[in-house]
Design a protein around this nucleic acid. Sequence first.
RNA 1: GCCCGGAUGGCGGAAUGGCAGACGCGGGGGCCUCAAAAGCCCCUGUCCGAAAGGGCGUGCGGGUUCGAGUCCCGCUCCGGGCACCA
Length: 826
Amino acid sequence: MARAYDVQAVEQRWQQRWLAERDYEVDAGDPRPPWYALCMYPYPSGPAHQGHVRNYTFGDLLVRHRTMQGYAVLTPFGFDSFGLPAENAAIRTGEHPRSFTEARIAELKSSVRALGAVYDWRREVRSHDPSYIRQSQAIFLAFLRSGLAYRAQAPVNWCPGCQTVLANEQVLADGTCERSGDVVERRDLEQWFVRTTAYADELLDSLDDLDWPERVKTMQRNWIGRSEGAELRLAVAGRQEEGLVLRVFTTRPDTLFGMTYAVVAPEHPLVDELTTADHRDEVEALRRAASAASEIERTSDGGSLGLAKRGAFTGSHVVNPATGEPVPVYVADYVLMGYGTGAIMAVPAEDERDWAFAEAHGLPVVRTVQPPDDFAGGAFTGDGTKINSGFLNGLAVATAKERAMQWLVDRDIGSRRVNYRLRDWLVSRQRYWGCPIPVVRCPVDGVVGVPEDQLPVLAPDDVELLATGESPLRRHPTFGQATCPVCGGPAERETDTMDTFVDSSWYFLRFCDPWAEDRPFDPAVAAHFMPVEQYIGGIEHAILHLLYARFFTKALVDVGLAPGVPREPFRRLFTQGMIRMGGSKMSKSKGNLVAPAKYFDTVGADALRLFHLFVGPPTDDVDWTEQTDEVIEGCGRFLDRVWRFSVEAAGTVRWATGDPAPRDLAVARSTHRLVAKVSDDLERWSFNTAVAACMEFTNDVYRYLRDEVPPHRPTYEAAADTLLLVLAPMAPHVTAEAWERRRGEGARIHRERWPAFDPDLVRQDRVTMVVQVDGKVRDRIDVAPELTEDEATALALASTRVQDALGGSPPRRVVARPPRLVNFVS
RNA sequence: GCCCGGAUGGCGGAAUGGCAGACGCGGGGGCCUCAAAAGCCCCUGUCCGAAAGGGCGUGCGGGUUCGAGUCCCGCUCCGGGCACCA
């Protein structure tokens, strides 16, 4: 495709200038108001893919637009450079993860530059840099001191493929690993945790004030899963004198009269205590089956209700405190140890899971809520009148809940309790390419943090990375040997590393002050730039990254590392759509990548950027089809027209002499309307319509310039300048070049102020008024915008088409909405 | 199963309750050219009609309104999230 200008030469020249001229380096002392724009920290997987291009196109548009509006825009870039792929590559090829990662960083960086996106590169942060590792470790130690980080034995998710434990958040709903896809196993191991649950309420409540997509907030709320209810203590029948009680959690204390049995999880500590000799074999068999079972069998499979629920009777009974009757206690794997107390009161009539279990095991059902007449049967979980429930009879569910709760509290059987689905975050990983956890274990002093002056703890380079995935640091001959900082005796060094989500949980704070050496960042500087005004990234981070980052920010303030920093890091969040091809997500693993480099080398970065802006609303997914290349070329064609109009036209046109004519004034009005429209669209993230407005304007002024009637030169110049200015954030290279050609050597369009518009000129001087009869358009009349209702009606009635449609009789009703429309009802 | 989105020409999409289909892609025609490419200009929802003009039309069925792609009720299909969390 022959182009109007030398695309590659122009784009490369400006990319070099932007690097050299450093316009986007800002500091806390900048007199302009700060504005923090941030795209999500990428994992460096090689050259940018279309998802990156889309992300950074939006980000760069924002950076350039806000800068032109007079803000000191903080626009940092960095790399989430720890992670498994580098380790896996090392196993395959023998290349060290560091050199592998740094090569991928260089590739990504170069394609980000080829896109023409501008950053303050002085602030580049990389997770695997010793300076960053040091501060991640300092933060871990601060958490350790304040009790936010702790070590505990727990049933954990073990991925046999990755040979490491995973956070709950990294296990998919079907029980497989989000990375490798292997079926995750459950193992009892001692691991490091971070106390995210301590912030459960704040993480939930402060979502309300965030300007985030509602669905992301909903996903986080569901993930935190706060539920209010009662914890009650059930006496074990015949064991009252020992004081043996079973603690259960319920959100439905009103259904107590319907409890016909109880269930404990297979891992429940009281199972042995409760199991009588004649039931031991059965219970043991069930426990073995449950512990061998993977999450996939245990949760997801059985999750579909109606599947057989495995369980075994313990031989013990607990007393239903409402009826005084003993009910059997079962062990069943549909009750999870990790939630509530690991034991439940089972009410089959009002709980579907309990119903399924009761049916399978022939247990009785007592309804305590009257189902509606047309109810099909099974568990009824809706609202209704309480029955078979003694003092609760006749009440509605909500009232009965409260009454039952009070009854339990008064008798000291139960207490109010809030439970969360959210668990503490398991942060330790048995991997090499991650941030080492900076502690040692001393036989005398126990677990001791490495003193700050000995940080960073760096993993050795000479490690063997084996296909079995066995922890390379644990196998290392010397890394594990340490000296106890307290007693000076020999100690054992921790060989686990941190989940890479730790790195991405505070990088946005480090960006504010990446030069700090004795602390993660200067809190005053962070307080100046934070919060991130606009955060841009993929919807896939709706839960994990965003929840962890929110937690970290709050925790950093509370442990004293970030005084004055806002507790919520991201004021506005934008989640872009995915790039899809043939119905599935475009990704490296699917092998359906369409590399951006191909476009950089042909139509150019500006055309590709414009395509991403133009193709549809930024939230929507993009379908990459056979037609896509043609659309991208269309964007290139449009830029050619902009070029010809703004750079080449002036030399070939014969100008009018004298004052501007009405058609010149009309173009001047369009110019002001363009500014108004694009300004508004950019604020509303309606980029596709902003591009469309520029195209429409270009078409109009092109015709104006080529008309036989000579155009008015100042009108043309203003139109050309304005078009370039509003396009400057969207297509930075071609507009920069055209501007310099128009204004002379050294002129920089991106240093100009964003254009203003005159509201008087934006208003149309003539508008088309639609005249309808019974809602059907019968005529269109050109009117002045300020005409009155009466004038509008009179004009409309004068129309012969309208009179024909009315058939001679006067309208029964007139709806006049000047200057848009008049509607006659016949 | 529950909770969110979404459905508009051949395609991507546009439209504060007031001209449905802006803009672009694709398609058609014309100009330029020896010719082609590029460029420039015009047309392009659908049906009837030679035309003027008219009928129909925003997933389906109802409703509110002078007027509904837009608001309300009930569905269908597609996409996403959650899913034994008591």
